[in-house]
């Protein structure tokens, strides 16, 4: 993600108004940066934490992260953790924390 992007997005805002319903993956990622997220991996393991940063591979750094097994039970807690993007199934916002 280049540092130019936020500026470009701001410029495009009036045009995007016409297509209000559209929301690209990069729009989504910008909006969840710094927020609590749930990251589900292909293995079924889920991580919940604050999304500190991410890159184009969907590699992510989470803060105050918690690991939940496929059974939904808390398995571990990590202060900070790096998640390799190729394992990610989806990222979703986490409303409650």
């Amino acid at each position: 993600m280049s540092s130019e992007e936020p500026k470009a997005a701001a410029d495009a805002a009036p045009a995007a108004d016409a297509e209000k319903s559209k929301r690209s993956p990069s729009d989504f990622l910008k909006s969840v940066l710094g927020r609590p997220v749930r990251v589900k991996l292909n293995s079924g393991i889920e991580y919940r934490g604050v999304l500190a940063c991410l890159d184009g591979y969907l590699n992510m750094a989470l803060e105050q992260s918690e690991e939940y097994g496929p059974d939904g039970l808390l398995k571990a807690k990590y202060g900070d953790c790096f998640i390799r993007g190729n394992n990610v199934l989806y990222v979703s916002t986490q409303k409650r924390r």
Partner: peptide, 12 residues
Amino acid sequence: ELKSEILLNGNQ
């Protein structure tokens, strides 16, 4: 049911 918006990774 995933109650909030998600970003689904395209690679799978």
